[in-house]
Design a protein around this nucleic acid. Structure first.
Lengths: 204, 204
DNA sequence: TCGGTTAACGACGTGAGTGTCATTTATTAT
DNA sequence: ATAATAAATGACACTCACGTCGTTAACCGA
């Protein structure tokens, strides 16, 4: 005889996730405490702890939701464009466009978590798992271009993928630290295109 | 009438810096406490606090020393090589070589600080100042190649510099999280060369 | 309407790290 | 030697965030 329905609990959990996401985005990962999340929520300390018992747990819940969205996004991109290169270029440009938003978004938070947790042995499996998944998503994307005969990569795809993720993640950081203009987000994006065109042997 | 000479104090300070550097490298920036540094040093809490009163202060002292070394290193590189491209390639390869060392070095710590502090308004000036300085050092390096007629950059130098620093910093992170092999350090380095050759229009 | 269940509450004990300060100890100048 | 100075000590009080748990009250089924 549950006091409330499962739907109710699920909804409450999702509300907490949404609230916490805002807090994380505003304060960053390390600076966010459970007390912050409690304060931002419409629940008490004990109430929140019934759903999540650490900031890390909350973070992972948010992050995993986001990753699911990324996969869908990439699949849609390929469907909606004539060439794989067009899709790729759109992805890069939309990324830059999103970065114009003064709100930094969760990418910066995820990046911070990534850096901060790199030495914690117990978090390492999660980080590696997640990176592997994201790598797979992006590799699939590029592989589609190779299969179509559009991309003729100069090196192994894996290195190209890592290079690109590395750089795009870094751009988030530069936006965070220096801002859009000083961080040379547009310039770096142009350079990324130069690199990708070269390494994938795109004409034009 | 000082109790000890200035040299003595300077030496003691340097000892603390050296000790703290090891602690930082082992534990990372965020995880290091003043108590850790005190424990690793041969001094008491109060003694250490006479020299540094926060981990951030210690960090900056270490970091500023390292930056000075970087400048000297770049100048030497240019002197010791026939072409600017040779010097650049040597820089990249030596970086990779250094990363083979299981000890991660202070670069990873600096990177962590960089990420963590990006939202703290009061640290922002220091971060920006430091990045500006490092940018200037690397820009000078590339500019030498341009002046010699070796490099014919496809975009503005600043974006190329940012792109490169972004990527090389990121490689440190990947080494940290995934290790040398899984992090595809060599592969990423090869791709960086492909990019640089293209964007600087190097033949061969 | 009522009893059983359990979500939600919030005060509290705990632990880790901080910065200070009265005291001790070592060094230098006379 | 001795006084004056200040470097070094380490115990202490303080803060902050954490996780718990006895209690309250809302909801559901009968």
């Amino acid at each position: 005889m549950p006091k409330v329905t499962n739907e109710y609990k699920e909804k409450r959990r999702q509300q907490l996730i949404d609230t916490a996401k805002k807090v994380f985005e505003q304060k960053g990962y390390a600076a966010t405490t459970m007390s912050d999340i409690v304060a931002a929520s419409d629940m008490s300390r004990g109430g929140v702890y019934q759903y999540f018992s650490s900031t890390e747990q909350v973070f992972r819940a948010i992050n995993d939701q986001n990753d699911q969205n990324l996969k869908d996004y990439f699949e849609r991109l390929l469907d909606e464009h004539k060439t794989a290169w067009d899709a790729l270029e759109t992805y890069l440009d939309e990324r830059v466009e999103a970065m114009k938003n003064p709100n930094l978004g969760f990418a910066a938070v995820a990046f911070e978590y990534f850096v901060m947790s790199s030495r914690e042995t117990d978090r390492s499996p999660y980080i590696q798992e997640r990176l592997k998944r994201n790598k797979a998503i992006f590799t699939e994307f590029l592989q589609a271009g190779v299969d179509r005969g559009e991309f003729k990569p100069l090196t192994d795809l894996e290195s190209i993928v890592m290079f690109t993720i590395n750089l795009t993640d870094g751009m988030v950081l530069y936006k965070l630290v220096l801002g859009f203009d000083t961080g040379k987000i547009v310039g770096q994006n142009d350079n990324l295109k130069i690199y990708l065109k070269q390494v994938l042997q795109i004409q034009g």
